[in-house]
């Protein structure tokens, strides 16, 4: 790693002031993605601002309205183990249980996971791909088995997070601060597909910090599920994943959110599929139609057509399991 300065921040405003003062500075939380990027020369900050020294940033609590408030440096392991999370937001625990490895879950943080860089063989390797200033995406026409099937603008790398699709399925938002203001951004508009005139992966400004992740209270009886297809049973990024949160009144679906992971530069919301299901009684036939709609508009590359089938199958299986379970 290239040498850098390391500063322990004492408060959120201290961390933000340091970010503002040091254009080549970046926040280090769990460090599991950042240090890996630095070892590979994909990031070379001059200053690391350690936020693990700030009191209270690892809290997990409910506010007066019953919304879950997660501190940004809460580790994935602690969030997954939390009794309240297991009771009311099981989807989060499920997604984390299949994320990375036990050691990485003990280190990686919630905000760090949400802000992790994309996964692509060309980007993480030694190639001048689009994300590293090259003219075009090398996965198009090249090795594309791990690439996205949706929403690629100029780069086909995928957002690899398991937690982000689960948070999106629960309608979560992030609270972001800079020196002047505090704003709440729904996760749905937080992620961006990198483009030539806008190279970032999120809307987070370089002098901004995530200070909170907020998960709204779910309706009574609402249930979630996270299904992930991997090339082996553990410690693997998603080939495709589906995070589904389903709410019903009597037999009818009152609300549903279906978010696909590992298939697009952002966690991919299958809005059209949700519309097919909302307000209806979920029969087997309807679930088939919802699953088919979930992959409408997919544009697979040379080697990743299998992701279309996987995504469809995960949505179908997830919905079937949710409907079965809530009947019993």
């Amino acid at each position: 790693m290239r040498p850098f300065e390391h500063v322990d921040a004492t408060s959120v405003s201290d961390a933000i002031a340091l970010l503002k003062a040091e254009p080549d500075g970046t926040i280090i939380a769990g460090g599991t993605d950042l240090l890996d990027l630095m070892k590979d020369g994909l990031a070379s900050p001059r200053v690391l601002i350690n936020v693990k020294t700030i009191d209270g940033l690892d809290r997990i609590e409910a506010d007066a309205a019953g919304h879950l408030i997660i501190g940004p440096i809460t580790t994935l392991a602690r969030l997954a183990e939390d009794a309240r999370v297991r009771q009311d937001f099981l989807l989060l625990s499920e997604a984390i249980s299949v994320t990375a490895s036990p050691q990485l879950r003990n280190m990686a943080t919630v905000a760090g996971n949400v802000c992790q860089r994309p996964r692509c063989w060309y980007y993480r390797g030694t190639f001048d791909c689009f994300l590293k200033g090259g003219n075009s995406c090398l996965a198009v026409g090249g090795r594309s088995r791990d690439s996205g099937i949706f929403g690629a603008a100029e780069c086909a790398a995928v957002n690899p997070s398991d937690l982000a699709p689960a948070l999106l399925a629960l309608g979560a938002s992030v609270v972001i601060e800079n020196a002047k203001r505090r704003r709440e951004v729904p996760l749905e508009s937080f992620f961006t597909a990198p483009q030539k005139d806008r190279p970032g992966f999120t809307v987070l400004g370089r002098d901004e910090m995530i200070v909170e992740v907020k998960v709204p209270k779910q309706p009574v009886g609402s249930r979630g599920i996270y299904l992930k297809a991997m090339e082996r049973k553990t410690w693997s990024f998603a080939q495709a994943s589906a995070a589904i949160q389903l709410s019903r009144a009597e037999a009818r679906v009152t609300d549903v959110r279906i978010i696909l992971g590992g298939v697009a530069p952002v966690p991919w919301r299958a809005s059209a599929a949700e519309d097919v299901l909302r307000g209806k009684v979920p029969t087997g036939e309807l679930i088939e139609r919802v699953a088919a709609t979930a992959t409408d508009g997919a544009h697979p590359l040379g080697q990743n057509g299998y992701k279309v089938k996987l995504a469809k199958a995960l949505v179908k299986r997830g919905l079937a399991m949710l409907v079965d379970n809530s009947r019993s």
């Binding site: 390391h6 280090i28 460090g31 599991t32 890996d36 690391l48 693990k52 050691q103 990485l104 280190m107």
Partner: peptide, 10 residues
């Protein structure tokens, strides 16, 4: 945890 992804100062 993984000591290869932990800074000694931390």
């Amino acid at each position: 945890v993984l000591s290869c992804l932990t800074l000694a100062v931390e």
